[in-house]
Design a protein around this nucleic acid. Structure first.
Lengths: 118, 118, 118, 118
DNA sequence: GTGGTCTAGACCACC
DNA sequence: GTGGTCTAGACCACA
């Protein structure tokens, strides 16, 4: 795993974790790696992992049992999906429509591109 | 105009200027505001405006006449459009398709949203 | 029973036990569950239950018979009540009055809320 | 300022800042101390102050202008008050009622205590 | 100058 | 063993 992109590492870790959960690599109510373990696996400071876990816990995607570690929340997949969909509908889609309007691209063209790349 | 978003202010200013040019608010070979004027209008440090003008000059969207100020390049609109279109086709569109596939959204849905927001 | 709050689990267990005693679920001189049994019921490590029993024993709310287990003290209810009442009058009530003053809430409002939740 | 209580320092700092705002020591749209300055004033690491500011920003009590610092949000006082009131009504008040019921204390008694301490 | 991120290392409570 | 907090110090982008 590489962390050289523009985004902050702790953000990339939240995405990494959500990906694991979506793919069922880490399952509901199952334990996820400790901050120390994931830190050494990803070659990152445990504090940085902690920061990612903190955010995921606020979003109720994972939860904590004292002294035992972090666990995948029961409806983690649902929360992740809805978070992503919300982000897409509210932010990315309007930007997308705005861009194609400015560039003078019609939805027909988009549909054509879509079929081509399938 | 607000500058509290995630993007750097100087980037937002380049976009602001390109917008003005595309909308013919600022026309070819016409003078654009001085860094001081635009700075005070946007409530931003002139240095920050200068940084934006610098970038636009490198892209040959505006040019400078010593002692007179900055002016819109002759083919500024063409350059902006092609820059954006290239960015859009090469980067944003594939990402967009990728995202809707991941979220399980069909092009039919996208078309529906598009009609709604018109 | 959930143990995800901020308070330490062993503290929550002492409160759980005192609750049982006050409600007469566990009666004077009656045996209370072994640390193993209560531990498995509450899905908690027996050591953690032991720590709670230790504290309750110091406060003479329960007592121990070698090889037999823990039992509810004769005047357990009285001890619990007086502990709580003292705590309440000395600490919680002044804090409570302080808070409602800060928030600008009158005792009339409090009385209204009280009637509503009955 | 002392930070010896049980609560985490960064929590105490959020409370410290909210107090300042409520008392109009720090006013709407006014700049608040930089993380470095407040850190050295409170004899605390700037990171710890940053963590507090982060939380206050999430709650939209303060906002950030890039490179300039943090500023008090326009309706910061309103947000703080409603946060506190919500916390009180939802959490503390039900606990309070629960406690007095368990201890067999009537609202009349509470009212009497209230009048006495005025 | 400002915040934002990250590391290394420490100490603590809790299980 | 686990997370939670905190410090010291570093580097970066931005204004």
């Amino acid at each position: 795993m590489q962390f050289k992109g523009e985004k902050a590492i702790y953000i990339q870790i939240t995405e990494f974790v959500m990906e694991k959960i979506l793919k069922d690599d880490w399952q509901a109510d199952g334990k996820i790696p400790s901050v120390r373990d994931l830190g050494s696996e990803l070659e990152v400071n445990p504090n940085t992992v902690m920061r990612a876990y903190d955010i995921l816990q606020q979003q109720e995607i994972i939860y904590n049992k004292r002294g035992l570690g972090f666990f995948v929340a029961n409806d983690a997949q649902r929360i992740i999906s809805s978070l992503r969909k919300k982000q897409f509908i509210d932010v990315e889609l309007p930007q997308f429509f705005n861009t194609i309007n400015l560039l003078g691209i019609s939805m027909e063209e988009i549909n054509t591109y879509y079929l081509k790349q399938q």
